[in-house]
Amino acid sequence: MAVDFRVNGRPVSVDVPNGTRLLWVLRERLQLTGTKYGCGVAQCGACMVHVDGQPTFSCQAPIEMVRGRSVTTIEGLSPDSRHPLQRAWLAERVPQCGYCQSGQIMNAAALLARNPRPTRAEIIEHMSVNICRCGTYQRIVRAIERAVKEG
């Protein structure tokens, strides 16, 4: 049965079996491949997107969960890749292999939306759901702090 929802402001309708995870629909049906598959069990955060503004593991979200809701992926975070976090991420030269960074940025964006001036401890607590195997954590903290400061 078709599921209608919005992705990055655009209405979409997909017909996939109930229970199909949002991650695979985004990637393989909607060609939004910035959202990554990392673990499939909500352990690494590479798949993080926003559903009605809430950070969500898309690898866990069954497609019917997003019916009528609004999904934002890394591709829709800003129209021109100039979101303060994206600029800060480049200024601090955060990415290495880069595979986890969409999820990192989306989770950081969710944090700042809820808490525009997080403490360092709050950043670390919030961001510890995302794994970066290249170990860019220290630069992620710096980038978030920079985005807070520079806006």
């Binding site: 990637r27 939004l32 491949t33 910035g34 959202t35 990554k36 598959y37 992926t73 890394i74 591709e75 975070l77 890749s81 994206q86 991420w89 480049l90 030269r93 955060v94 990415p95 880069g98 595979y99 960074q101 969409s102 940025i105």
Partner: peptide
């Protein structure tokens, strides 16, 4: 600037899985 970095903050960087 590393040539691969801009694509790694906006989802356009392409890995084989993509």
């Amino acid at each position: 600037m590393r040539v691969d970095l801009p694509g790694k903050v906006n989802g356009t960087a392409r890995y084989s899985i993509d």
